[in-house]
Simulated assay, not measured.
Amino acid sequence: MVERIALETPRLRLRHWHDDDLESLARLCADPEVMRYYPALMSRDDCAALMVRSRLHFVRHGVGLWALERKDSDAFIGYCGLASCALPMPSPTVELLWAVTCDQWGQGLVHEAANAVLQCAFDTLGLDEVVACAAQLNEPARQLLEGLGMRPEQATAFGHPDLVPEHPLHPQLLYRLQRDDWRQ
């Protein structure tokens, strides 16, 4: 078994899931504003499955999706972390994922959490690359990813596999960040 990693930033704990996080996660993933760039809202059962998949990913790989908790209030505010990329890629790749409650937007918390995740990916785990996907019309995610140093590959724009081509979220961009670029 791989050692499970927990992370901290000045304002956040990126911690392992507690069973009582399920209700908060279900509220987060049922919020239409939070999920506006996702193909669909997630049910409570979907959220339970997400927690199980993340726990298994931690057991197998040492990383997964961490629950985000504010240090000043111990409040669960979302998640951020790495998951095996579902896209067909030439080699196994991990993808940066996140979601945060609306009342926490605009405070730089996702950027702070994602920076900690990327540092762990490159410096602790020795990964060569991390990817992220964003709908072309998801300007907040695109700004976040570019602020982290990730760059879109226009040549690898693709359609979301779960959406029909006419859906506004179908056009997606693939972002990449190489370890050497992170260090710069």
Rank of each mutant, 00 (worst) to 15 (best):
E112R: 09
R53W: 11
Y79Q: 13
A121F: 06
L68G: 02
W182L: 13
R11D: 02
E166G: 15
P92H: 01
H111K: 15
A141G: 04
A86N: 05
G147M: 04
V164G: 14
T93N: 02
R70S: 06
G78V: 01
A83N: 13
L109W: 07
R55T: 11
Q178D: 15
L145D: 00
L14S: 00
A132T: 04
L22I: 09
D123Q: 14
N115S: 15
E146P: 06
T93S: 09
D19K: 01
Y175V: 04
A155H: 11
S91P: 01
C85I: 03
R36V: 03
W182S: 12
E23Y: 06
C120P: 04
V131P: 02
R70M: 10
C120S: 14
C29F: 13
M51C: 03
G62P: 05
E166W: 12
I5G: 00
H167Y: 13
D20P: 00
Q104G: 06
V100Y: 01
C120N: 09
L68V: 06
D45K: 10
S54C: 10
L169Y: 08
M35V: 04
A26P: 02
L65P: 12
D72Y: 02
V164D: 15
E3P: 10
Q143P: 01
V94H: 09
L25W: 08
V63R: 12
Q104D: 09
G64L: 05
E23A: 15
D123M: 13
H167L: 12
P165E: 12
E146G: 05
Q143G: 08
S91A: 12
H18I: 00
L12V: 00
F122W: 12
R70F: 03
L65W: 11
E8A: 11
E139T: 14
H18C: 06
R15Q: 07
S84L: 14
T101E: 15
M51I: 13
R11K: 06
V63K: 08
M51Q: 10
L97Y: 14
F158R: 05
R176H: 14
E23S: 12
A116Y: 11
L125W: 10
L137G: 09
R55W: 06
F76S: 04
P140C: 03
V34H: 01
A121L: 07
G78P: 03
D20C: 05
C80D: 00
R27S: 10
A99V: 01
A116V: 09
R53L: 13
